[in-house]
């Protein structure tokens, strides 16, 4: 269990570094996508540890809607949000 937490935390931290330091807006958008993916995994792990399957709904909402923000950033860079 500790190994899982360390792996998830390390991945989240690396993506977070790219989010803060990222040279361009596109780098930050990709880093945001990565962090939401890793966070979804962590939410599933929390639902497993607490033993309540209804907490999986939160992970479902995350995975359904997290790409919308990245899509909006892409459309903005493209010039579609004016």
């Amino acid at each position: 269990m500790i190994i899982l937490f360390v792996l998830i935390g390390g991945g989240l931290f690396l993506a977070f570094l790219r989010l803060i330091l990222g040279a361009k807006a596109a780098d930050r958008a990709v880093a945001l996508d990565t962090t939401t993916l890793i966070t979804t995994v962590f939410l599933v792990l929390v639902a497993f540890l607490q033993g309540r399957s209804m907490l999986l709904d939160v992970a479902l909402v995350y995975s359904v809607l997290s790409f919308l923000g990245v899509l909006a950033v892409a459309r903005y860079i493209d010039g579609g949000l004016r």
Binding site: I20, R28, T35, T39, L43, V46, V58, V61, S66, I77
Partner: peptide, 28 residues
């Protein structure tokens, strides 16, 4: 635009904290 992306990350992390505080409705 970078600031907007970073605020989106803060909001998503807040949702993770809401789940850890046993508030799944607020997290959704």
């Amino acid at each position: 635009i970078s600031a907007i992306i970073i605020v989106g990350f803060v909001s998503l992390s807040a949702s993770l904290l809401f789940l850890l505080m046993d508030a799944p409705d607020v997290a959704i």
